[in-house]
Every structure is written in C-alpha cells, then in structure tokens.
Amino acid sequence: MHETVLWVLGNGTVHAKTLIMTWVVMIVLLAFVFLGIRKMTNGTPGKLQNVLEWIIDFVRGLISDNMDYKKGSSLLTYLLSLIMFVLFANLIGLIPNIFAPLLSHVEFARINEMFGGAIFSARTTTLQSPTADVNTTFALSTITIILVLVYGLKYKGAHYFKHFLEPYPPFVILHVIDFIAKPLTLAFRLFGNIYAGEILIAVILMIPGIFAFGGIIPMPFWLIFCVFIGVIQSYVITILTVAYVGQAIEEEH
C-alpha cells in the first residue's frame, strides 16, 4: 500500500484519507437513510423504507436471540447505526476512484496526494474504506467494550466484577485476557479483512507483463468476494457486540 497522508492536528496527526472517506460514508449513509424515511408512512411502506424496516427487524432479531429483549432494546439504535456504517464503509472501498485525474490537480489539504493520480495506477485505483484503518476499527471496538461494561454494571451492579473471579480467583488472569482480547479481536478482524481486501485489489492490478490486462479476469471475482466479506464483517461485528453485551448481563447459571 501507498503511504498514508497525515494531517497535523495540534501536537498530533490524523489520517486524512480515512477521515475524508468517513465523512463520505456518513453522507452516503445519511442520504440513504433519510431518503428511506422521507415519505415515512404507517401504511404501505416504500421500497427504501421497507429495506430499513427489514434491517431494523433483523437487528432486533439479533438482540432478542442473545438476551432478554427488554434489557437490550436500548442497544437497538446503536447497533443499527453500527451495522449500516460498517457495511457502507466496507463497500465504499471497492468503488473505483474515477475522480483520480480530476483530483490530481487539487492541492488543497493534499487531496492530490490522496486521491490524485493516473486512473489506471494501482495506488489510487479504488477509494479507501474507513474500516481499512486500524483507528476506526479500534474506535468501534472501544465503544463495544464500554457498552459491555456499562450494561454489565447497569444490570448486575458491582456483582458484575465477581465473574472475573469465577470459578476460582486465579482465573482472573484468563478473564482479564478475555476482556482485553474481545475489543482487540473485534478491531483487528474487521481491519484485517478490509485492509487485506484492498491490498489484494492493488496487487491484482499490479500483475505484470502480459497479465496486466489479466486483472480483468480475477478482479470481478475478487470484488464479489470483497462484497461478501464486507457484508459478513458488518454482520460479525454487530452480532459479536450483541453477544458480548449479552454475556455481560446474562443471569447467573
């Protein structure tokens, strides 16, 4: 992969392309959702409203499968936003960067460095997924582990910490590792899947010589597979969040 352009913010830096793509994803997602609820009706729903309602029902099903729905219903809006955001973020990385020649002349905020370039260059051939940035996935998994803590404390109080010592106090080591591993695996799983997908797109385009055009043959298969991975990963991070929270608030057994 090419080098990541950094914007300087205070005494630190931010990943410029990740932020821009995050904003793009948010705009697309908000447009999608608000188009869907624009003509909201409790009569016969429109197509887009139907899709949104199906997603709501789907996520509601995930929650009620993993915990008492009364306890988990407050998670619903967060999980809906999560699954939609991750899905859109995963898929946006597969869109070809058709603006590359145009943007190669924009020097503002170093956009030319991020998006510019020849249209066939592997460097800028597709847009970048926000989820192909380890910061984004860690931000998401941080929220998950905070939710686990908050829900555990909310429904079990201080009693929640007792399970760290079960069945015997020495097991606290395993429980702590488990507690740390949860957000780590969540973050790296999503990041790894999406980042690898984008790298492979670049690699396929870099197939040399007579096979350079050969990218045309493997590329569609890889893109289809990437779509599949993107959908699966958005589902996985959502259901794992539900499962972890469900574990934290489940009754003693």
Partner: peptide
C-alpha cells in the same frame, strides 16, 4: 506534509 507507511499507525484519528 508528513506521511506514514505503517498500516498500524495510531494517532488522533482514533
């Protein structure tokens, strides 16, 4: 400006 090559570069982006 500054750039990084590491895919595991943590900063304020988080």
């Amino acid at each position: 400006g500054p750039t990084t090559n590491s895919p595991l570069h943590f900063d304020y982006t988080y």
